[in-house]
Nucleic acid binder design. Structure first.
Length: 434
RNA sequence: GUCCGGAUGGUGUAGUGGCCUAUCAUGAAAGCCUGUCGAGCUUUCGACCCGGGUCCGAAUCCCGGUCCGGGCGCCA
């Protein structure tokens, strides 16, 4: 049996006289002597429970006055429209139950009277998420996932899951987490890349996956974590330009849906929310390098990866989402297809937000011989990729795809300072608990 | 990994060799109070990251460690 009839957010002055049962947390208790107020909080807002000493029995008044903050309470009572109360209504209780008392002192203050450091918040994340502005980000994340799935299904893309426990440690340069797999060593996968490409060879034609990726890099920044959720797609008989259109559409749909459906959460975050306009600017790597050289006077060679400072400069200069295209083949992975007439550049692209990279993708190499050659060219041994290469020998359609970091999308969308604010239980170099 | 900064009640902070028996806010405990909405008022409680050193004297200076924040690097 559900222990509430209404969420606080569903109660309005218009239902004056209705009996409701609310359940949630004791946000604050203010006892003024002859009158006491209990503010009950649930995920949709607050409700003021008003106890007038003369009107409620002595035991109830005393019990409410003694409730510790953040205890779980259930309140049955009458809705009364009341201009003096926050939200224009209050609840006159007939019954107040403490379902589970909270210990004191609290590990942090969910009412936000006192600031709290991120590390302290993460140590008590369950309590941190009781704060409306923290909860709002995760509710928006859920909305984004919902609309993206919807967007993919509308385009006839099939949702799949690929393994997170893998044998290959030879995919590329990044560090993998080794794990013990019965009598063998295995690894946590850093990307579904090879698997979603194999599914193109399987004739699934268009697939997407939303799932975790693991990177053992010892990076230590506000925009990297060692466990992240990646939104990946792969599309057959499509090129880089086609999947860039899909990516741009995905990002705009996400913003659009949030703007239309998450006003309460956006208000909790106090955001001035703008939906980006498609089409996004597309500039080539070479153009970006020129722009950076002109604007910043920093020695950068063609073929260097763009450093953080250059990325930031480009972001400030362009000021909105943009694609960086036509990268040097040397700094993109082996599966990125080089231009036929100019093999020094390739059909790889990054989707950039002014603050950081959000996604990267490419038209892929689908020719077996070229793929083997490209793997060798990166100093890797093709024999380690046999399970993958096999799919390229029996009919592999031309294909393209991308991977988008969910938390970075949310972080930039909601102007969060730290990626840890966009992940419920983040995993970084130091944090393994909770 | 590296550079810079930091660690003081449950939480957030003040403090730059003696004035620290450590500031303020929040919190907690007790009391007063009938319209609070960060309620108000009174009383009380609660802290110098760990180890070593310098000094008559260390929260404060030095060394080592641990942890944290920010920048960069790394991030096929």
């Amino acid at each position: 049996m559900i222990l509430r009839t209404h969420y606080t957010g569903d109660v309005t002055p218009e239902i004056d006289g209705t009996e409701v049962t609310l359940a949630g947390f004791a946000h604050e208790i203010r006892n003024l002597g002859g009158i006491a107020f209990l503010v009950l909080r649930d995920r949709k807002g607050f409700a003021q429970i008003t106890l007038v000493k003369k009107l409620v029995d002595k035991a109830t008044f005393k019990k409410v006055a003694g409730i510790s903050r953040e205890s779980v309470v259930q309140v049955r009572g009458m809705v009364k429209a009341e201009a003096k109360a926050p939200g224009g209504f209050e609840i006159l209780p007939t019954e107040v139950q403490v379902l589970n008392a909270a210990e004191v002192p609290l590990p942090m203050d969910p009412t936000e009277k006192v600031e709290c450091e991120l590390d302290t918040r993460l140590d008590s994340r369950f309590m941190d998420i009781r704060r409306p502005c923290v909860l709002a980000a995760f509710e928006i994340e859920s909305a984004v996932l919902r609309v993206l799935r919807d967007y993919f299904y509308r385009q006839g893309i099939t949702e799949v899951f690929t393994p997170k426990i893998v044998a290959a440690a030879t995919e590329g340069g990044t560090d993998l987490f080794p794990i013990s797999y019965f009598e063998r060593e295995a690894f946590l996968n850093q990307s579904p890349q090879l698997y979603k490409q194999m599914l193109m060879g399987a004739g699934m034609d268009r697939v997407f996956e939303i799932g975790p990726i693991f990177r053992a890099e010892e990076h230590d920044t506000r925009r990297h974590l060692n466990e992240a959720i990646s939104i990946d797609i792969e599309v057959s008989f499509a090129d880089d330009k086609d999947v860039m259109d899909i990516l741009e559409g995905a990002v705009v749909s996400a913003y659009q849906y949030v703007a239309e459906n998450c006003s309460r959460q956006l208000a909790a975050l106090n955001l001035d929310f703008q939906v980006p306009k498609a089409p996004f600017k597309r500039i080539t790597y070479t153009e970006a390098l020129e722009l950076a050289k002109e604007g910043r006077n920093v020695p950068m060679q063609w073929g260097d990866d763009l450093d953080t400072e250059t990325e930031r400069f480009l972001g400030e200069t362009i000021g909105e989402h943009y694609f960086l295209t036509d990268w040097p083949s040397s700094i993109k992975p082996y599966y990125t297809l080089p231009y036929e007439d100019r093999p020094e550049i390739c059909r790889g692209f990054d989707l950039m937000h002014p603050r950081m990279e959000l996604a990267s993708g490419a038209q892929r190499v689908h020719d077996h011989a070229m793929l083997v050659e490209r793997i060798r060219g990166k100093g890797l041994d093709p024999s380690g990729f046999e399970f993958y290469l096999k799919a390229f020998r029996y009919g592999m359609p031309p294909h393209a795809g991308w991977g988008l970091g969910l938390s970075r999308l949310i972080m930039t969308m909601l102007k969060l300072e730290n990626i840890r604010d966009a992940v419920i239980f983040p995993r970084d170099r130091r944090r393994l608990v909770p």
